[in-house]
Design a protein around this nucleic acid. Sequence first.
DNA 1: ATAGGGTTAG
Length: 529
Amino acid sequence: MFTSAEECVVSLLQRAFSLRDLGQAHAIFTKSNVEACLPSLFSKLLSLSALSLWGSLAYARSLFESSSRLLESTAAHNVMLRAYSASIFPTETVLLYNSMCRRCVGLDNLSFPFVLKALGRAVAVVGDGPAITFAVKGAEVHCRAFLLGFDCDVFVQNALIYMYSRCGRVDYARSVFDGMPVKDAVSWNTMFVAYDRLGESVSANQLLNKMPEKNVSLWNSVITRHVRLGDVSAARRVFEEMPVRDAVSWNSMIAGYIRVKKYSTALRLFKKMVAAKIDPTRLTIVSVLGACSEIGAFNMGLKIHEFLKKNMIEIEGFVGNALIDMYAKCGNLKLARQVFDTMGLRHVTCWNSMIVALAVHGHSEEALELFSYLERCNVQPNRITFLGVLLACSHKGLLEEGKALFHRMVHVYSIKPDIKHYGCMMDILTRRGLLDEAHQMILDMPVMPNSVLWKTLLGACKVHENVELAETAFREISKLETPDDGDLVLMSNIYAEAGRWEDVEHLRNGMIGRSLSKQPGYAQIELLS
DNA sequence: ATAGGGTTAG
């Protein structure tokens, strides 16, 4: 009985190409309790789920947490560290690392590179977090690696270079680099990119000239360097001339075209990539879907979605986010919502894409419902989330809801409102005719008001016939910038309606002095190359 | 095993 179950699992795992296969293997494990006897097979199951293109990090996590045996295994932890470090939740790697330290699960030479990579990536992915926080944590990890004697490992050293450079400490990165008795291609490339990203071309070029071997990765870095300097043709020349191209080469070139807004060219290159039988990676998918969103290429987006289904590529994390955003930007809220409802590992940006899209399209109630669902799911909203719900309130004139949400943002989530949040509140208040309250808000807010806020108030003063406040608003606009013709016309109409003709005259004269000439509006249509 | 590719949402 046991042998047949074992054989069955081995053969299932060998030929696994979808989550369904893993599910079957897992079911056999659970039924026959093979897990206790075959930890290596269970680890194999975990790593297939966590790391393959068709795998699912969410599923891997549930596997990992369901097995007490795995909770002691360094190898299993390394699989999770690795998967998290490349995911949309890099800080999960750090949390798992902390818990390993706490529970005395052994760290080995493989653990450190993943934790360091995650810290380097977290700076970009978490965004708002100051790099220095991650650099400090990175230094702590560095210390532990030193104490355990792993700081002599080239993989660990390379990861240290990466971590320090991404956390804004190229100086530390360089001292690790200089202290390495043996450097490999990765060391040189990582250090080169560190300088190049900072625009320190002298140091970057020095490394380029000194490095002993030039591999594919370096060519890829050079492609990106040209793109960063704004020369996508030079990047393309390198791409065409390089001896060997891998998936990253294609991704770099596609990303390059997207960076210079040549979306159609990017999509054409993607088609070439598929034709050249280079398997797209998750990153290819994310980039290409982003290009579709930009130009509203709905059919291309649909095709990519089909491709994902056909290849059993799990829709979660970055891929799910990109797919939702593509559908939302193409105006298909129904499909966006469908992806949202079925995907695993939703990052707050997924919620934001969905909430903002609903708000923009006037589905205010749905947007607000989704927000309360977010709170029930214990997801931390951020400033964009609140921009979305406030926009939803302003569209439907939901005064009480808007005020309550604004209060919640400040006092429950400790998010400092910025000028755009105040702009939404201005809309909400002025549409209800609460001009004095709106005025008071501008006076009280801790950020410097811009002319847009005053112009909103001025417009509301016209509707609600408040000459006095209009004069104040107009004066404030004049302090910030030269009032444009729209402001002048608005103000003079307000005077006219109040019968203050001498003030109208006064303004008119001022306008003639500036040669009132309403610039004809024109739309620029960019021809797609 | 590590780099190189993306950094979202208004």
